[in-house]
Amino acid sequence: MDTPTQPRGCTSFKTRQLMRRLSQHYDAEVSQSGLKTTQYSLLSHLKRLGPMRPVDLAGELKMTASTLSRNLQPLIVAGWVAQNAGADARSRLVSLTDAGDAKWREAQQHWKTAQQKLNALLGVERVLALHALIDESLELMGTGEPVDVQD
């Protein structure tokens, strides 16, 4: 069989197709903790980065501040994220609460299960190659502007 010399099909469609499958895979596991995968990701970033201004967190996540605000609201209402005064009267900081840390730990176990199942399904070598290809592609495409991603 001949190897094509040019890509066939739409790269955007193919990556979205893969993203939907991956999202379904992780959502099936992480949802057992009562969180969406996007919520787990937010808690994970706050745990790793510590208290920070929402605009800075949005920048880290490469999303708009309005999208971050919408995604943070259910976490704040649930008591997993706190929003407190920052350095001056105009600034705010968001941080993980003790309850949020406990919820993150619960969800992390489900995330680990999802990752282990994916490694078994695809093979660790393929997952490592996929990570490398994604990282290289992102670097070649540049930083880009924050995108409006909704869960």
Rank of each mutant, 00 (worst) to 15 (best):
S66A: 12
Q108W: 06
L130V: 13
K62W: 11
L128S: 15
I76E: 02
Q39C: 02
Q24G: 12
S23G: 14
L43D: 10
T67K: 01
L43P: 04
R105F: 07
M63H: 02
R48Q: 13
V94G: 05
T97E: 04
A107K: 01
S44V: 14
K103R: 01
M1S: 09
L133Y: 14
L133D: 14
R92W: 00
W111G: 03
V81C: 08
W80G: 12
T64Q: 06
W104A: 09
Y40T: 05
V127M: 00
K112S: 15
G9R: 01
S91Q: 15
L46T: 14
L42W: 04
L133S: 15
K47M: 01
G50H: 03
L72S: 06
H25A: 00
A87N: 11
Q24K: 11
V124H: 13
G86E: 10
S23M: 11
K47P: 00
A120K: 12
L118S: 09
S31F: 07
N119Q: 13
L96H: 01
Q150E: 04
K112E: 13
L61F: 08
H110Q: 11
T67W: 10
P74L: 14
L22Q: 04
G59N: 10
E125R: 05
R20P: 02
V127W: 03
G9V: 10
C10K: 04
A120E: 14
A58D: 00
P51F: 12
R8K: 03
T11C: 15
P54Q: 06
S91C: 11
D88F: 11
P74E: 11
T5R: 06
L130A: 15
